[in-house]
Design a protein around this nucleic acid. Structure first.
Lengths: 212, 212, 212, 212
DNA sequence: GATGAATGAGCCTTCATTCAT
DNA sequence: TATGAATGAAGGCTCATTCAT
């Protein structure tokens, strides 16, 4: 449904979508594999079966391609995540468990998009260029959401008052990102589902005690 | 004492140490800040108050400079860590807590060296070039050590038999690296000591329950 | 006919041939004038009215450009030479005279290609890199052909049995290359045709006596 | 006797001569092997067991080192050659035979010096820099001498009047240089003495007929 | 819609050269 | 006497970018 929104879409538009899709997928894959700076437009174009020129035709610049990828990742991952947690009724710990569960599912369905976001958040910390700021922006949304959950949890007594909000939200993100990166790094060697479960059970136990 | 081992060191040797030191420190700092690929030798040389030529005089190539940094990081961080945990008597959970405590201290004393290691481990996953393989090698040492600790802990009943060794070791590294990266990312915004304590207390609670 | 094989060739292909042609001609000229190592890609690009980038677009590296030049020189000079002498009926001395006559004509028509070959064969003798080996390969073809001619000449009594094959073939090449180099060196000062005739008449007399 | 001209030479001067000797010999060897431009001062210094600085201490620049080599080659090879042919009584053909015989002996005794001269005469033909002009100067001496011999031979009837002086002198040099280069190129493969004899006998026969 | 030719800024690297010691 | 440290100009090469077709 997403792809064929307009059933009367003409051939040109179809071709356009097809090419853009191939380029973005190739870009996601290669940026995750080699890092943004180490990966050339040549690489991406070749992987997509097109030429460098096509990238400029569709995206105008390398930076803009990256911004598009970030938009996609935000729309596919962060928006649904926030929506999901907003709608969800439940205690703070439950919401945090949901956070892990939900993004883990994303990480399995769309590993490149999630990993692209995480790797971009790490590759550069200068904060000077547009893409860096865009990444920060996305991360701030996540931090903001988590801090609200934690604060409410503390207010309602679901979480210990002593928990430092900011540091704890940071810990959640850290554990999550670290988990995804290690999962990607050790690829073949570990059992994904087992690993994810180990992570958030440990984590939840950590906050609430082993009964939770 | 390490630096001034020979107090009667001649001027040339002193100059050499001084320059190498300035270059490696600048390299550590800039690679952590901008990533290896995004950071030029010009940047590094300027930050060290020297010229590109000096880098080639001392290190022969950009890749070799990186390898030297990895050697330094391994010697300053990983070697002492492994030694520390080897010597230490205690249960598996205590050793894992020590792992966090020890490297956190390293992360505060020599943040650039630890972060350089972590960032390099993330920037590229192709595993094709020498530096990539060197990073993997270093990480394998850490993984190996952790897996031994976990296995012994399981054998002695200090850790639940149900704990999957490999996945759990991965979780420890993931949490640790994620923590360091987030700490670095949010820099001014969070309280380092408070954060680190939050991390490993949560983590330990997660394994052993809140009393531990 | 060779160049305009397809009269309906499209513009891109024409442009390509034109640019490649200009670059190779410039490269031949400059390498002959200044030597391979002393001549920069900047020099070549400028002489061809293009930029360094264009060289890499077409040839990928300086070494590869040289290899292309060697291929061209072999195809234009050595192949026809060997074919010519293979087809030719006649005694060994006649064939050797033909050798001089034929390559002298080549040397006048395409002086840069022949001289490039000769100069490259002299500039380096390390034999370590690819281009060096390629040059040796080409020269071995010439030596092989000459040695066959000499051996047959000795067998048929056209050449004295006492003539040492290998040394004599070397002499032919030495005289020929020396001649071309000196002709190039003294450029304006000597009469090319007169010089060439002097060379091979002297040479032939040397083998067969003044009557030949 | 040449080296220890002053029997009371002090240690410093001896050391000086020793170092200069090692450097020039290394330079001769390497320039012949790799060509002037392809051979770095580092190479030379290392081969001499010294450092780059020493070269500048003794020679001031790379070009100046080359000029010194050319001076040495001229003094050791060209001066004795001209002296030898001047003193020698005999016909023009005999003098030319002497020319080959004499330099061949030089080529065997001091191959690097003679080959350095020849290779330098080929590597560059721009004639713009000092070293190029110096090489030309040396070659002009040889050409001048040969042309005098040929002219006198023609005047006295020892050589055919029809012989074009300039072209013939060029031929002599061409044959000689070509011979030396090929001898060096085919190194192990050919018999030096046999080769040289083949060359000049052929050559002489060429001018005078097989009886000479 | 997409390509192939070409550019130019900037990178890593080399190397002759300088100089304090 | 000779070295080791350091430089700077220039070389080969990469890569994002432009543009005519």
């Amino acid at each position: 449904m997403t792809k064929s929104a307009a059933p009367k879409m003409n051939k040109k538009a179809l071709l356009r979508e097809e090419s853009i899709g191939r380029l973005t997928q190739a870009a996601f894959r290669l940026i995750v594999a080699k890092g943004y700076h180490a990966c050339t437009l040549q690489d991406i174009a070749e992987a997509a079966g097109l030429t460098k020129g096509a990238i400029f035709f569709y995206f105008e610049s390398k930076e803009n391609l990256l911004l598009q990828l970030l938009d996609i990742a935000e729309a596919h991952i962060v928006d649904p995540l926030i929506e999901h947690l907003d709608e969800k009724r439940g205690t703070a710990p439950e919401k945090i468990a949901s956070f892990f569960r939900f993004t883990s599912k994303q990480g399995i369905d769309r590993p490149h998009e999630l990993l692209c976001l995480i790797k971009m958040s790490i590759e550069s910390r200068t904060g000077t260029d547009i893409a860096d700021r865009r990444v920060s922006e996305i991360y701030e949304r996540i931090y903001g959401m988590l801090e609200v959950i934690v604060d409410r949890g503390k207010a309602s007594g679901e979480l210990p008052r002593s928990l430092p909000t900011r540091e704890f939200a940071t810990l959640v993100v850290a554990t999550h990102d670290g988990m995804m990166l290690e999962w990607h790094r050790r690829g073949g060697g570990i059992d994904g589902r087992l690993f994810v479960r180990t992570v958030w059970q440990t984590f939840l136990n950590g906050i609430l005690g082993p009964k939770a």
